[in-house]
Amino acid sequence: MSKADKILRVTDPQRLPAGLRGGVVAIGNFDGVHRGHQAVLGRALAEAKATERAAVALTFEPHPRSVIRPDIPLFRLTPAPMKASILDRLGFDAVVEMPFTRAFAEQSAEEFVTRILDGGLGVSHVVTGVDFHFGKDRQGGPAYLMEAGERHGFGVTLVDAFRDEGAEIVSSSRIRALLTDGDVAEAAGLLGYRFTVEATVSKGRQLGRTLGYPTANMALPADTDLAHGIYAVKFRRADGTLHDGVASFGRRPTVEEDGAALLETFLFDFTGDLYGETCRVSFFSFLRGEEKFDGLDPLVAQMHRDEEEARAVLGKAVPLSPLDRAVAFPPD
């Protein structure tokens, strides 16, 4: 998925090429780039197409909450590279990953408009959610942004909160809670695509190889609060090729007393060396929770059952959306 990414990623608005200045800018944290975010992003893309201007996303790194409340761990749904790749698939030309620091948080709302939107990006139009606030003490809100747009000469579109089929607002926190419970299927319904992680394949103890189940081992960020257990997954290599598989995320209680959480994926019908590759894993179904078995024989027997179930699940899987097809399915 990342090999073909064309989106430009910059951290300084001043480094945006002249051809992308004066574009339509969607503003938000966009952690997860879920269906609610896609409602905002879609409006920006439509405006950019109608006015024949560049489509740019303005987001913040790290996530503002991790700076404002560093004592509370934050489960990031889409770290910057993943977020940029999804924005690329949606059709954005560039993403400005604005460094979020305490000093940045202290600037006034007018400084944000003058320095970032007007002077830095030269925006022609801004699209954001109705709950977007900015500037010190959140002094800038929807009314302020509309008024600032009139003064600085750019248009503003505010998008209402997006609700799912059950009339509940789709939010990143709601998706995090589902993933913490292992409900990757429900989370996918809110994301609009299968939850996907990215990491480099590292060498492990190679115990799986001796059991007939060699795995690609990936250490995920420490704040990844995904439920420990067994999942049916699709595994995308760095070259874009895709493989079905079954993955375990957890601490491997049968073979280790106190191991660090690790994602271990067994790729179906695959032989080869993946060490050092940065790969992605998309989660389709939660099969069962993590268990401690009384020895390796019952563990292997259960692994056979897990493989059969995962093959059955993945054999019936269909894309949830064009974005899901791009993220979690083979290219056409």
Rank of each mutant, 00 (worst) to 15 (best):
L16H: 05
P17F: 12
P17D: 05
P17I: 14
A18D: 02
A18G: 08
G19L: 14
G19W: 11
G19Y: 12
L20G: 02
L20I: 09
R21L: 12
R21P: 08
R21V: 09
R21I: 05
R21A: 01
R21W: 09
G22R: 14
G22Q: 15
G23Y: 08
G23M: 11
G23T: 13
V24R: 04
V25M: 12
V25D: 07
V25L: 03
V25F: 04
A26W: 04
A26S: 12
A26F: 05
I27N: 07
I27E: 05
I27D: 08
I27Y: 04
G28W: 07
N29R: 01
N29P: 06
N29A: 14
D31P: 08
D31Q: 10
D31Y: 04
D31A: 15
G32Q: 11
G32P: 11
G32V: 14
V33S: 03
V33K: 04
V33A: 00
H34R: 06
H34T: 09
H34D: 00
H34Y: 10
H34K: 06
R35N: 03
R35T: 12
R35A: 10
R35S: 03
G36P: 12
G36T: 13
H37S: 06
H37Q: 13
H37R: 10
Q38C: 05
Q38A: 01
Q38F: 04
A39H: 13
A39W: 08
V40P: 03
V40K: 04
V40H: 02
V40Y: 07
L41A: 03
L41V: 06
L41D: 00
L41E: 05
L41Y: 00
L41R: 01
G42S: 10
G42N: 10
G42C: 14
R43P: 07
R43G: 05
R43D: 07
R43Y: 09
A44M: 13
A44S: 02
L45W: 04
L45E: 01
L45Y: 09
L45V: 12
L45R: 11
L45A: 06
A46E: 13
E47A: 15
E47L: 15
E47K: 15
A48H: 07
A48V: 06
A48I: 05
A48P: 10
A48N: 13
K49D: 11
K49C: 03
K49L: 02
K49E: 14
K49V: 07
A50G: 02
A50Y: 11
A50S: 14
